[in-house]
Structures are given as structure tokens and as C-alpha cells.
């Protein structure tokens, strides 16, 4: 079992796990987005997809365990590596830091995806909690919502203005996170090749944008009107469960918070 321990303990092994779980969660994002896009196809298509998904309980449980497991490992290692990375700098930090990568600025306001993975990761974690409360555990649902079909349920949740804002921001944050994480996972898993890496990096950025736009688009989705639940007050009940877990953080990176001592570079 020592190779397994080495995977979780060695710096490079941890990167394999971060990258591997990250890519797995990216794959989940694609599946999740594809499923959600059925909302645009109308209630029948979406409801039948959702119901079909829930018919196979065993598969669902395995998938959910896998997803939660990957997410927890990903988050756990993010914390471990982040604390190691902070310690590695030593007792005294730099008084000043500037990037040598042309065009990059290192400081709190410079939100380069690769240096803010810890922040975007934390935001995503918070969002996932909310998203699960909304759809899986239905913590905030009233009787009408609990009884609604999946399509109506989605419409009811997204009819709230605060949800619209939160879900839109979350979509963008996830997009930023995966725009670095996707390509980074290839590097961590040793799949970098001078010939293909530029393509992978481009794909990664496109993927990030697609995720942001794709998931973000649902806040402008007009399903509320179609099922007549424009405002939370008009929500009705429908019996079903919601299939989704949550769009999880997809990265392999071990993000650290931007150090306060990093200052704005001089000209």
C-alpha cells in the first residue's frame, strides 16, 4: 500500500490526485451542463431525463459517492498543500514581489486564475453548499416546490433575484477556476507536450468560458414564465427529487491565498 500512501503524501503524488480529481470533476461539469441544457428543450425532455437518471438508484449512489469523494479529496489536498506552501516560504516573506511573466501582475487585485485557485476554490465550495441545499436537500423549499416536477423546481429556485445573482457569479467563478485547472491538470499528470500544450491551454480557456456562459445562461432562462412561476409567491408543488449534486470545483491546483506582503509592483 506504500505506493498509495506515496500518492497522498509526496508532493508529486498529491498533484496527481489534485489533477485526477479535478479532471473527473470537469467531466462531471460537462455531463451536468449537458443535462441542464435540456431545460431549453422544454419540460418534457428535461423531466424525462431527470426521472430516468433517478430510476437507477445504485448507479446514482455510486456516482454520488465518487463525486463527493473526489470533491473532498480535492478540497482536503488543497488545504494541505496550501498550508505546506505557506510554510515553505519560511518565517519572513518578501517585502516586494513582481512577476517576471510579461503582462502578469502579482497582487490582490490581479485575479490571475492560476494564483487565485484557493480563493475561487473557496467560493465554489460555498456555492456548492448552497446549490445542494437548493436542489438536493431542498432546505429552503416550501411544500409547493417539494411537490413540483424537476423542471418547475429549477424554475422556482431560479426565479429569486438573489439566486440569479449568486448563480451567475458562481458560474463565472467556476469558469475561472477550470480555465486554469483543466490545463494545469494535464501538466500535473505529466501530459504536457510542447506540441499539444498550447492547444490544451486554449481548450482550457474555451472550456472555462463555456462553463461560465453555459451555467450562467440559466439565470436568463425563461422557464419561469413557461411554467408560470415568475415569482416565489406563485410556486406550486410537485412530487419528485432533483438529480443534481453540484458543479464541483475542478482543479488540480493547490491554491494559496495571495500573500498580504505582496505589494503592487513599481513601474
Amino acid at each position: 500500500m506504500s505506493w498509495l500512501l506515496a500518492t497522498l503524501r509526496s508532493s508529486v503524488g498529491k498533484k496527481f490526485v489534485m489533477g485526477g480529481t479535478g479532471l473527473f470533476l470537469c467531466f462531471f461539469l460537462v455531463v451536468h451542463l449537458a443535462g441542464n441544457l435540456l431545460l431549453y428543450a422544454g419540460p418534457d425532455a428535461y423531466n424525462s431525463y431527470a426521472n430516468k437518471l433517478h430510476e437507477n438508484v445504485a448507479l446514482l449512489i455510486v456516482a454520488e459517492i465518487g463525486l463527493f469523494g473526489a470533491m473532498l479529496l480535492h478540497i482536503y489536498l488543497a488545504f494541505v498543500t496550501a498550508s505546506e506552501n505557506r510554510a515553505a516560504r519560511g518565517a519572513t516573506d518578501y517585502a516586494m514581489r513582481q512577476s517576471k511573466i510579461p503582462g502578469r501582475v502579482i497582487h490582490v487585485a490581479g485575479l490571475a486564475p492560476d494564483t487565485t485557485m484557493y480563493i475561487t476554490g473557496a467560493l465554489i465550495f460555498g456555492y456548492i453548499a448552497l446549490h445542494l441545499c437548493d436542489f438536493k436537500f431542498e432546505v429552503f423549499a416550501d411544500a409547493a416546490q417539494l411537490a413540483a416536477d424537476p423542471y418547475t423546481k429549477a424554475a422556482m429556485v431560479l426565479s429569486s433575484t438573489s439566486r440569479k445573482v449568486i448563480y451567475a457569479i458562481a458560474a463565472i467563478v467556476v469558469g475561472i477556476h477550470v480555465s486554469h485547472g483543466f490545463a494545469s491538470a494535464f501538466q500535473s499528470l505529466g501530459l504536457n507536450h510542447p506540441k499539444y500544450m498550447p492547444t490544451i491551454k486554449t481548450i482550457s480557456k474555451v472550456f472555462g468560458v463555456a462553463v461560465a456562459i453555459g451555467f450562467g445562461s440559466f439565470v436568463t432562462w425563461d422557464g419561469q414564465r413557461r411554467c408560470g412561476c415568475e415569482s416565489p409567491a406563485t410556486m406550486e408543488t410537485a412530487p419528485t427529487t432533483m438529480p443534481s449534486t453540484a458543479p464541483a470545483a475542478a482543479t488540480e491546483s493547490a491554491p494559496a491565498p495571495t500573500t498580504p506582503a505582496e505589494t503592487v509592483p513599481q513601474s
Partner: peptide, 10 residues
């Protein structure tokens, strides 16, 4: 006790 790589390419 060097830190971990997070692929920032600095």
C-alpha cells in the same frame, strides 16, 4: 520542505 508546484510558471 520545499513547497508544492501549482503550475504558475513563475
Amino acid at each position: 520542505e520545499f513547497g508544492n508546484c501549482t503550475n504558475t510558471s513563475e
